[in-house]
Computed example of a mutant assay.
Amino acid sequence: MPEIKIDSSWTLFLDRDGVINERNFEGYITSTSDFKFLPFVFKGLKKMSKQFSRIIVVTNQQGLGKGIMTETTLDTIHYEMCKALKAEGIIVDKVFYASNLRGAKMDRRKPNEAMGIEAQNEFPEIDFKKSIMVGDTGSDLQFGMNLGMKTVLIHSAEIVTIEPDIKVNNLNELADVLIF
């Protein structure tokens, strides 16, 4: 398996569903009770949070655009997620989400680069060549590739045809592969 050597100037970009929490393949995470952390998330992110300068979550949330949930509900889910991570010593610098429907005129959804550009505008020190995008879908990997990031695929039920730099089963495996 290839290794990536990082230092404290690197940024970790994470997809949400399927990377941080269990993904609902039949629908959407629409409440805090639907949100269940995946195994090894805390252990892996605890190791990596000490090494990366920033941790950014980028997530497509089309359920908002479909009216299945409200922005307040989504903000509450993200607040509770960040609070639980912070309780373990893991700081998420910001959660960016795309709420538009697929194919919208102003499409912010991955694989489009909009959320990455917004993150860099807010945190100008982000260098995409010193960033890793972790996801479980082809659009996550393509997002990272479009911006020049290293890419990591977390195995899931999703069929992905794009070849990432690294494939792992969870965030703890990723932490063990990276060279700090």
Rank of each mutant, 00 (worst) to 15 (best):
V95C: 14
K50F: 09
I55K: 04
Y79H: 14
D136N: 14
D127C: 05
V95E: 15
K150C: 01
E122L: 15
M69H: 02
H155K: 15
K5G: 00
F42W: 04
E26M: 05
I179S: 00
I6P: 00
E163G: 02
M81T: 08
A114F: 15
I166Q: 03
I159P: 05
K83H: 10
I29T: 11
Y28E: 09
I179T: 05
I162P: 01
E71Y: 03
Q120R: 15
L171W: 02
S9G: 09
F180G: 02
K43G: 01
I154E: 13
S31H: 04
R109T: 03
V177K: 12
D140K: 04
N21A: 02
L45G: 06
M145N: 11
K167T: 12
M133V: 03
S99C: 09
M48R: 07
C82P: 01
I55Q: 02
M145I: 14
P164I: 07
P124G: 01
L85K: 12
I55H: 03
M81G: 00
G116E: 13
A84I: 09
I166A: 02
E125H: 09
M149A: 01
V168H: 07
E163N: 12
I132W: 08
T32Q: 12
V160T: 11
S53T: 07
F96G: 03
G44P: 08
K83P: 00
V134N: 06
V152K: 02
F128R: 07
A84F: 07
G103H: 12
G116L: 13
L101H: 10
E80G: 00
N100Q: 15
N169H: 10
A98E: 13
G116Q: 13
A98F: 12
L174F: 05
T137N: 07
K50C: 05
M145W: 04
E158F: 11
P2A: 14
I4E: 11
Q142H: 00
R23F: 01
D7T: 07
K47F: 02
A114V: 15
N60A: 07
C82T: 10
D127E: 11
T30S: 10
R54W: 06
K167C: 09
R23P: 02
R108M: 15
I179F: 00
N172E: 12
V92A: 03
E88A: 08
R108K: 14
T11S: 01
K47I: 09
N121P: 02
K105M: 12
T73A: 11
M1W: 00
F40A: 10
K50M: 08
